[in-house]
Amino acid sequence: MTRRDLTLHLGLIAGLFALHFLLPAYHHGVFARVMVLAVYAIGYNIAFGYTGLLSLGHAMFFGAGMYGVGLASYHFAIPALPAWIIGLGCGALLALVVGLLALRTEGVSFMIVTLMFAQAAYLVILYYSEYTRGDDGLVIPGDMRAIGSWDLSDEGTRYLLAWALFSIALMLSLWLVRHPFGRVLVALRENEERARLLGYDTGGRKLAALVISGTISAAAGGAYATMFGYVGASFAGVQYSIFALLWVLLGGAGTVLGPFVGVLFMTYLNDVASGVTEAYMLIAGVVLVLLTLFAPQGIVGEIRRRFWKDLP
């Protein structure tokens, strides 16, 4: 990890901290949500961007973290921090089980299998509506949304917690991709057969990458539930898996900053477009097609290709 890497990523973290004191109320709330969803995208990027595992089921890990927190808080009155740890464990365990089964396949087959697992998880949520409340979702009680004296329903506290979680995930991602383990993941993405011939346990590395990816995604889901007080089945649906893929592609797959840039760009694109017309998704679609045509490697990926060759 070079000094320039640290300067860039710590600079972003410092800039987001400064924005806590500068942003107006509306954008303050938007940035808190962006940072939490960026953690989800960072988790997805480890599997897809660095390891080459194209998953259409990552929403089940996000949902596992979310429902781990929601069910623990709503039905058992478990406080926010222990509930979040439960959500984290649920996501990690689910990623391990799914990985052991889905990684028996590869390529398009892997994508389809993860999609099927995600749909099964979504249907389980709907089936056990007595506990999950199905499409209506769960509203987490206010007294369960606190860590000690920190009230997570307070906008300032929520922003700082989102910032702390994003900062940890970002620096963990940077450390991982600069570590030899991360370089092996890139080798798997580029040529798995060659990596196997060099003596690497490709199956074990891919499983580890998927578990790390799922755990980070679950951390984001649990944090989202705690911070915003709502748990809904739609967050575990296929649509949210596609969102993660879209965010990573827009920002730049296989770049550390790409997930954050992709979430930020997509959030404000929809926000601005919805203020122009009710058919805002049409505008968003046109912009995304243009971006795909003229920046196929994503925003940060194009910056790396054109100006900064060793940008992580």
Results as ranks from 00 to 15, higher is better:
residue 3 R to P: 09
residue 6 L to S: 11
residue 14 A to V: 10
residue 21 F to R: 11
residue 22 L to F: 13
residue 30 V to M: 13
residue 31 F to Y: 12
residue 32 A to T: 06
residue 33 R to K: 15
residue 36 V to P: 00
residue 38 A to G: 03
residue 40 Y to H: 05
residue 40 Y to K: 02
residue 44 Y to I: 04
residue 45 N to K: 03
residue 45 N to S: 07
residue 48 F to M: 14
residue 49 G to E: 04
residue 50 Y to K: 03
residue 57 G to H: 02
residue 61 F to R: 06
residue 66 M to A: 14
residue 67 Y to N: 02
residue 69 V to N: 05
residue 72 A to N: 03
residue 79 P to N: 01
residue 80 A to W: 00
residue 80 A to L: 02
residue 93 L to T: 12
residue 101 L to S: 13
residue 108 V to E: 13
residue 110 F to L: 09
residue 116 M to V: 15
residue 116 M to G: 15
residue 116 M to Q: 11
residue 121 A to K: 09
residue 136 D to T: 13
residue 143 D to H: 15
residue 145 R to L: 07
residue 149 S to M: 12
residue 149 S to H: 14
residue 149 S to T: 15
residue 151 D to N: 15
residue 152 L to V: 06
residue 153 S to N: 13
residue 157 T to E: 11
residue 157 T to P: 08
residue 158 R to G: 10
residue 158 R to Q: 09
residue 160 L to I: 08
residue 163 W to T: 03
residue 172 L to T: 12
residue 172 L to V: 12
residue 173 S to L: 12
residue 178 R to V: 05
residue 179 H to N: 15
residue 180 P to H: 07
residue 183 R to W: 09
residue 188 L to G: 01
residue 192 E to I: 10
residue 192 E to W: 06
residue 192 E to M: 08
residue 194 R to F: 10
residue 196 R to L: 14
residue 200 Y to S: 10
residue 211 V to N: 01
residue 213 S to E: 01
residue 215 T to Q: 01
residue 216 I to S: 04
residue 218 A to C: 05
residue 220 A to M: 03
residue 225 A to K: 00
residue 227 M to W: 08
residue 227 M to L: 15
residue 233 A to E: 10
residue 235 F to E: 14
residue 244 A to T: 00
residue 244 A to N: 01
residue 256 V to A: 04
residue 262 G to I: 00
residue 271 D to P: 07
residue 272 V to P: 08
residue 273 A to S: 12
residue 276 V to S: 11
residue 280 Y to T: 08
residue 281 M to D: 13
residue 285 G to W: 07
residue 296 P to K: 11
residue 296 P to C: 10
residue 303 I to A: 15
residue 304 R to H: 11
